[in-house]
């Protein structure tokens, strides 16, 4: 390292290799063009689409109005209804609760992993990464099997009188949160682990020596120290959870409609692309708003060392 720095200062200036603009452009060009044409421009054109209207037969009619924004605010054909607002609120709530549940599981989990021997740690991490790669549809379907009427969980619930005899534990909130939490737990646990692993156990011991209880240690020591990982985990969980519609569709049924399901409907049954675009933008906006709120509440203090 030092040697090469020394060499760099003493060596006589070599003619710098000219930046090869043409070569770079030829290499990067096709990929950039692809992403621009199929990703950037369509994303931006969502805004134009949101201002258009649905034609009589489901085609897009380019008469620009603010009707879709009005519909988003809840003003439909028959006056104001809270339906859409409720769906948006429910989406926020489901994403927030899912994130919270993931945090609640991920902290003990990552602390447990970090306290193992290094070889065992790798094993645990692989165990967490594998479900991350399995298909969302298949896993939601697995929960359908487990929560079926004949299985022990539903039998137990029926025995306790929580559900009628012979009923399944889906569709409902329990099924949705089980599905959502297990889908997103790896997204929360992996970034969080990166922070937890670097936590100095001596600090926690010091806190314990000073008679801090577990809760206080977590709140005053562990939480502030692991905030960078927590923030990444929250983003990686909350953003896709807001947009999720497969898990909620399979496990939640029609009563638990979320914004993701609504967007999907606009592009299938309803054939209303402009309103679908409006809803997509609303989803983006809500997500960004929530993350900004998180950032403001949890300022990411860079370590000064």
């Amino acid at each position: 390292m030092e040697l090469s720095a020394f060499a760099a200062t003493t060596a006589k200036p070599r003619p710098q290799s000219r930046p090869d603009r043409l070569g770079s452009l030829l290499l990067a060009g096709p990929g950039l063009l692809w992403l621009t044409l199929l990703m950037a421009i369509p994303c931006l054109s969502l805004v134009a689409m949101a201002l258009a209207t649905r034609g009589q037969y489901g085609e897009v009619s380019w008469t620009f109005t603010l009707d879709n924004l009005k519909r988003l605010a809840g003003f439909g054909l028959f006056g104001w209804t809270p339906d859409l607002g409720l769906i948006l609120l429910r989406s926020l709530l489901v994403a927030a609760i899912t994130t919270l549940l993931c945090v609640a599981l991920a902290y003990p989990l990552t602390f447990h992993i970090a306290s193992r021997r290094p070889s065992v740690r790798v094993f645990w991490l692989i165990l967490i990464i594998v479900p991350f790669w399995t298909n969302v549809v298949v896993r939601a379907y697995g929960w359908l099997l487990i929560l079926a009427p004949q299985m022990p969980p539903a039998r137990l619930a029926a025995y306790l009188g929580l559900i009628p005899e012979g009923a399944a534990l889906y569709p409902g909130s329990l099924a949705v949160y089980l599905g959502m939490t297990t889908t997103f737990l790896p997204f929360m646990a992996l970034p969080l682990y990166a922070s937890v692993e670097r936590l100095d156990p001596a600090i926690i011991e010091a806190a314990r020596d000073l008679y801090a209880n577990s809760l206080l240690i977590f709140w005053k020591v562990a939480l502030p120290q692991t905030r960078p990982g927590l923030t990444v985990g929250v983003i990686m969980t909350f953003v896709p959870a807001m947009a999720m519609f497969v898990v909620t569709d399979i496990l939640g049924g029609a009563k638990n409609m979320l914004i993701g399901n609504l967007i999907q409907q606009q592009f299938s049954q309803a054939r209303d692309w402009p309103f679908g675009a409006t809803l997509s933008l609303a989803l983006m906006f809500l997500t960004l708003l929530s993350l900004t709120f998180w950032r403001l509440r949890n300022p990411d203090k860079r370590e000064s060392s």
Binding site: P131, V138, R139, Y141, G142, I146, T181, T182, P186
Partner: peptide, 9 residues
């Protein structure tokens, strides 16, 4: 919880 659904399938 992570493995139960895949295992059931």
């Amino acid at each position: 919880l992570l493995y139960l659904p895949s295992l059931a399938v």
